[in-house]
Design a protein around this nucleic acid. Structure first.
Lengths: 262, 262
DNA sequence: CCATCTTTGTGCACGCGTTCACAAAGACAT
DNA sequence: ATGTCTTTGTGAACGCGTGCACAAAGATGG
């Protein structure tokens, strides 16, 4: 997955393991699909297959929520949808603000998956005055000067940061100061936040780099060439020290405006 | 984090733990920033702070790559940048195709972080004939009929899926059949792929749901109200069974075109 | 050349997460 | 009512990842 976990030291909230919490949305999605097909019950085996996990893991996950299954039959789909939704807090309305309406911010604003799960885009915020008032995905963009007012007025507790990396920390600080306690960060930076605030990050570049690693390994196995070569001893290591080698100008990252971290 | 790991059973490629691989891009980013500021060396303590991790963890991570540090001094920034880049396979060019040029696909196409790390957008592909030929982020969109030809011709091994969920598996199958062995999936579906193919997924909706869970927990602790209520015994469970309760029509998800999974 | 001080590299212990494997629970048929 | 068969729920073992704490390595100063 492209998700970065937070520093949260595995606080095991309310006895439900973090790993389990991360899978609940997966089960919920699979169950919702079954529900729409009017399937009354599922076995752990079937549901696990649909969610792409091990059936034993799924049963253990559900056991943390309580005993909602019937032996010899399986789980009642509708009931389970309700229980998981409640557990995840999706039975209530969550107003969300998106800060940074560039390519990515706009794409996120137009995402249909928000409303379907109790998330409501309360506001779009951007620092560019030229954007102010312009409707994106049907919602008028507001200027970042009004950030605090918007947060407090609408009681927003979840913020999405889709700004350039350079301003992400500032935006984060303002969000937190205004009362936001959960942040989804798309900017390529490590955000520092006070205790009690959750941060999750989504980083396209990191995902690609991880894929590249495995891809390289696959290729290396075939050729046997450089794949398992010992760390090249001393030959041709790039000029150690000296003036910043690469390019000189600030790299394409460093404050990427658009999508994800580098 | 918004990243979903694959089913890969912790294959520990080449002796480097998967968890370490996932952090290397983080270190690399921090090191690149230092390099641009012409900082010659860093201690594990400093670098760890910049990357947002524990210093012991960082040292252990680096120990898997070899002994690149100097006791009493720290790590040579340039040298480490080179070593990590090489380890991640970023010293070579990785052509990437993006399939599904909707809001998200377009945002991804315009992402500057690609080129900076050896990733090159080789092609944008969409099934809508109206899109064909239209330039997005300076690259003309090609029709999905040509998918196989493009993959083989450019030797593409990494594919990004940003299509609606409904067609994601088909697209995935075609990509794999054409030779792609690494996939980054933004569609809200569990993709099944043959052995040897890596899949990572990015799912906005899941991230938000995880945040909502913790958010609810925080709120529950304060009021003490519903926060720790036992799973409501038998009262008011939503109509178990019966015609698909919710709406009837296919939900807003199910084949979300835009951004991420539900 | 020796002493001191800094910082790496790692052995070890601990805890979370995963998986196996099975007993218990209940549906269903007779 | 009883037996059989299916499927859950979970105890226990295992493995990975994390973090502590320290010895070894090397720089630096006298």
């Amino acid at each position: 997955m492209a998700t970065g976990r937070t520093h949260r030291p595995a606080t095991r909230s309310r006895g439900i393991p973090e790993a389990t919490v991360a899978r609940l949305p997966l089960y919920l999605r699979a169950l919702t699909a079954l529900s729409e097909r009017s399937v009354p019950t599922v076995s752990s085996e079937e549901l696990a297959a649909a969610a792409g996990v091990n059936s034993a893991k799924l049963r253990k996950d559900f056991s943390y929520l309580g005993s909602y299954g019937t032996r010899g039959v399986g789980y009642d789909v509708e009931y389970l949808v309700y229980q998981i939704s409640r557990e995840l807090g999706l039975t209530q309305d969550w107003p969300v603000v998106i800060v940074g309406i560039g390519n990515l911010g706009a794409a996120l604003a137009g995402y249909g998956g928000f409303a379907s799960r109790g998330f409501r885009v309360a506001a779009l915020i951007d620092a560019d005055p030229a954007m102010t008032g312009r409707p994106v995905a049907g919602i008028p963009v507001q200027h970042s000067d009004d950030l605090e007012r918007i947060i407090e007025q609408d009681g927003v507790s979840i913020g999405v940061i889709a700004t350039p990396a350079g301003v992400a920390q500032q935006v984060c600080d303002r969000l937190v100061a205004a009362g936001v306690t959960s942040i989804l960060n798309f900017a390529p930076t490590v955000l520092s936040v006070p205790d009690g605030v959750d941060v999750r990050k989504v980083d396209l570049s990191i995902e690609l780099q991880i894929l590249a690693f495995h891809e390289q390994r696959k290729a290396g196995e075939d050729t046997g060439a450089d794949g398992d070569a010992e760390h090249t001893p001393a030959v041709v290591p790039p000029a150690p020290r000296g003036a910043a080698g690469t390019g000189g100008r600030k790299g394409p990252d460093g404050d990427v405006p658009a999508v994800m971290p580098a």
